[in-house]
Amino acid sequence: MPAAGFVVANAFYPNQQELVMMMVYLALAQGINVIYGFTGYLPFGYVGFFGAGAYGLALSVLYLHVPAGVGLLFAVLAAVAVAALLFPLLRLEGVYFAIASLAAAEALYEVISNPSLAAVTKGPYGINLVSAYNANASFVAAVALVAVSMGIVVYLRTSRLGLALRAIRSDAVSAEFAGINVVQRRTVAWLLSAAMAGAAGGTFAWYTSTFYPGAVFDSSISIFAIVFALFGGVGTTWGPALGAVVLFGVYNAVGISQPQYFQLIYGVLIVLLVLFLPGGLGSLVQRLAPRWRRLRRTPGRGPEALPGVGGPDG
């Protein structure tokens, strides 16, 4: 598992925080993969689930006094509850969904950070979980997060559910005719994706343990997750994972001291990808390795998009 890679890396790479962030982003990119890659819904407000997860863990630890490991379950629950509340968004399409989800995430942030609710959420005053802090345990949680999120995507790639989702994505009406319960399947993908972000948020909260609401509802978290997923190529198993590892690595090498350069780089990358390589980096690899592609015939958007490819690079 790629999770093993992180365990090995931890042994000789001293900045554990960076590894944890990489794992968190890997899970988020895979979460975007589940909802966007398999259903076509692109949630710009994906960070809402992340923040809900962070607060799910934090508040359960603070008020229910559960161990942080159990708090992760509450993180998932909180994100799933928010997703359930937002079911109606799935009636929307394309841009409406994308921007409505962004508005929903912003609204959730405004509510949680509102001083009127400080008695419950600690409002803008921030969370301090130092008593529950445990670097090693939360690192293990992050490794598990990577394993589970990879597992979910592998499952979707191979299961009937994933097949159904891809059928819906390419043509919802025909899928409906073929007897697929479109609404139900989409709902499952939505909840799965939310749960993944919730677990990522919970893990982040546990590892960071002192944070203000702005840090876990930062819209650049959605942006990074989407960019990483698109860069690697959605609809594939390892595209988003590759995107997260490579781009977050680049971010730490280049962007950390001059984030504008990084923003410029990925902004340009996105533009080039859309124009020249809509299937993401994954499709490039597939194109360059036809033998390998024959070995594993991959349905999904990558190969289908290839005929439209005109440019030489991505």
């Binding site: 692109l42 394309g94 923003q263 990925y266 902004g267 996105i270 533009v271 990808l273």
Partner: peptide
């Protein structure tokens, strides 16, 4: 949508 998202990031950086 994604294209203009990319353009927006480029404008912000510049």
């Amino acid at each position: 949508l994604v294209l203009f998202f990319g353009i927006s990031q480029v404008i912000e950086a510049i």
